[in-house]
Design a protein around this nucleic acid. Structure first.
Length: 564
RNA sequence: UGGGGCGUCGGCAAGUGGUAAGCCAUCGGUUUUUGGUACCGACAUUCGCAGGUUCGAAUCCUGCCGCCCCAGCCA
């Protein structure tokens, strides 16, 4: 249902226009089919999500098919665990299963091999005996046209024999390679007789013991064609590869060949989207793992409590454009996270940095129960009981000994409302005689200020949250911040990564307390600490020690503005 | 200085000859037991720059300028 609505609301984009035109022209007699083709060499992250969102959105819009295809043609970089994680994370992101539409380029190795032989038979490919250095030299550069290889005109028979020997492991890696015979002097470097197959004596995590492996430029268009893909979307960096993509499809006589259409990839400020650099963060121990809540991976964001729907909304809000890669502000992502969580997260009172308050005129041992709504405005979420007592905790930030103007929380002699309960007035400040630090407050409560829903009660300017000291549940709060300093947008690898890491990106609060209703909350659940932010119960939590990850703070611009 | 691609508000991004949508951010205000939410309002006389065509251009033409990608047996 939700999908239907977003489909109708989906803004048009230039790729959709292209597809519509192809449909109009009757270019394809098969259904529209798009795909998301990650290489399983790391974990799925925001960049992947955008790419998947584009392909998936298009398929949905045209009532077509959407494939996940592992682009696993280089066994030296890929692992099964990445494959498994990628499938799991994509399904989580999409919010539904892939229903059997999971493919692997490696499953096509036999067909791909057949195609290579066919290319040789047509005189469109040859076995190269030059070394890597020699190939590079013959290829020329931007200003120098390449020269044809001396092995370019081998006979079909010789090429076939050599290629089969490569397949059979009779040649060492680096000695022989299969090349497409296109144009050694082409202005597009990709067309200067690109390499199609390389010798690699390395087993494949899925396909077994191959001795040769195809390269992306060859495997990709053919895999698309094998699967019936009609529109193959990819990043702009592949625009130079499109002529090659089309060349292979034509050389091998595919009818109704798929089309490659490029769009702008995005990056997000103050984070990192390159798997290579993320790997450094993980391996050098700067983060706890690929699922560290600071990581922009699906698993990291999930652990931090970002709902998949928020990431989906974020991706679709980015739109699809042909403009050059842009930098998206983290604030946009945070907006969608808040928007989603605001409607779903139960409100709970939690105190990150407790300060004890003794209510002098409230008898010790006595309690007062209040019914507090779990989600104001949504009665279906029910109510919970919070009980007031002689000693409570408030957050240190909700008290100021010398309050600046417009500060309307607690201060000596001032009043605040304890949410859902009474109004209290601060009567005394107790400090550590040596450090001068405020250690405790004394206060009185106003018995007539009891909160009753819908009732007419006295108003004070500030309302703060609190926890009854007798029932306070100790928890650990992990406050995750940005991974990178504000000065950099992403990381280009030109300097040590530590130069850009935000040193205070993780703050652990061990003394935080929460009201008892938190007990029994499932890991993954996100709650809102009123006036603070959203917190997600970490999978590492135990009943003895609840661990909560901060998902995102509440919007607090007005407060920041007033107090600089 | 070869080839390919791109330039619309601080950030995304609509618009494709008829007189600059929307979202985020920002700034005001209303409501409110969260300085939250919700709601209201402000926010590009101008579309990289300069010419030209036209009654009329961000949209067409010409010339500049700027940014990105390509010389892996990576994807």
């Amino acid at each position: 249902m939700r999908d239907e609505r977003s489909e109708e609301d989906a803004p048009s984009n230039f790729i959709a226009d292209e597809i519509a035109a192809d449909l109009e022209a009757g270019r394809y007699t098969r259904p529209i089919c798009t795909r998301f083709p990650p290489e399983p060499n790391g974990f799925m992250h925001i960049g992947h999500a955008k790419a998947a969102s584009v392909g998936h959105g298009l398929a949905e819009r045209f009532e077509g098919l959407f494939n996940l295809r592992m682009d696993d043609t280089n066994p030296s970089k890929e692992e099964q665990r990445f494959v498994d994680a990628m499938i799991h994370d994509l399904e989580w992101f999409l919010g539904h299963g892939l229903e059997g539409r999971v493919f692997h380029a490696s499953d096509y190795f036999p067909r791909l091999y057949e195609c290579a032989e066919k290319l040789i038979e047509k005189g469109l490919a040859y076995v190269e005996s030059l070394t890597t250095e020699e190939i590079r030299d013959y290829r020329g550069d931007f200003h120098t046209p390449g020269r044809p290889s001396p092995y370019r005109d081998r006979s079909v028979e010789e090429n076939l024999t050599l290629f089969r020997e490569m397949r059979d492991g009779k040649h060492e890696p680096g000695t022989l390679v299969l090349r497409a015979k296109i144009d050694p002097a082409a202005s597009n470097m990709n067309m200067r007789d690109p390499i199609v197959y390389r010798v690699m004596h390395q087993p494949h995590h899925r396909a077994g013991d191959w001795k040769i492996y195809p390269l992306y430029d060859f495997a990709h268009p053919l895999s698309d064609a094998f699967e019936g893909v009609t529109h193959s979307t990819c990043g702009k960096e592949f625009a130079n590869h499109r002529p090659l993509y089309d060349w292979f499809l034509e050389a091998l006589d595919f009818v109704e060949p798929p089309r490659q259409i490029e769009f702008a990839e995005i990056s997000v400020s103050r984070t990192i989207l390159s798997k290579r650099h993320m790997k450094v963060l993980v391996e050098d121990g700067h983060v706890a793992g690929w699922d560290d809540p600071r990581m922009p991976t699906m698993s990291g964001m999930r652990r931090r409590g970002c709902p998949a729907s928020a990431i989906r909304e974020f991706c679709s809000a980015l739109g699809v454009s042909g403009a050059s890669p842009g930098m998206v502000d983290r604030a946009l992502m945070d907006h969608f996270v808040r928007e989603a969580l605001n409607k779903t997260a139960s409100r709970v009172m939690g105190v990150p940095r407790p300060l004890k308050v003794v209510i002098e005129n409230y008898p010790e041992g006595q309690t007062d129960d209040f019914q507090a709504s779990n989600l104001p405005g949504d009665d279906s979420r029910g109510k919970r009981t919070v009980s007031f007592g002689h000693e409570i905790y408030i957050d240190r930030s909700d008290f100021m000994e010398e309050p600046p103007p417009k500060y309307h929380r607690l201060a000596p002699g001032r009043e605040v409302r304890l949410r859902s309960a009474y109004i209290i007035k601060c009567t005394e400040v107790i400090k550590d005689p040596e450090t001068g630090e405020v250690t405790e407050l004394r206060a009185t409560y106003d018995p007539d200020s009891k909160w009753v829903p819908g009732g007419k009660v006295r108003k004070v300017k500030g309302t703060i949250q609190w926890v009854n000291a007798a029932q306070a549940v100790p928890v650990q709060l992990r406050m995750y911040g940005e991974l990178f300093t504000a000065e950099v947008d992403g990381y280009d690898g030109s300097a040590p990564i530590t130069d850009y890491l935000e040193p205070d990106s993780l703050e652990v609060l061990d003394d935080a307390v929460v009201e008892p209703s938190i007990i029994g909350t499932e890991p993954g659940t996100v709650v809102q600490f009123e006036r603070v932010g959203y917190f997600c119960v970490d999978p590492d939590s135990t009943d003895e020690r609840l661990v909560l990850n901060r998902t995102v703070n509440l919007r607090d611009n007005r407060f920041r503005r007033i107090f600089k």
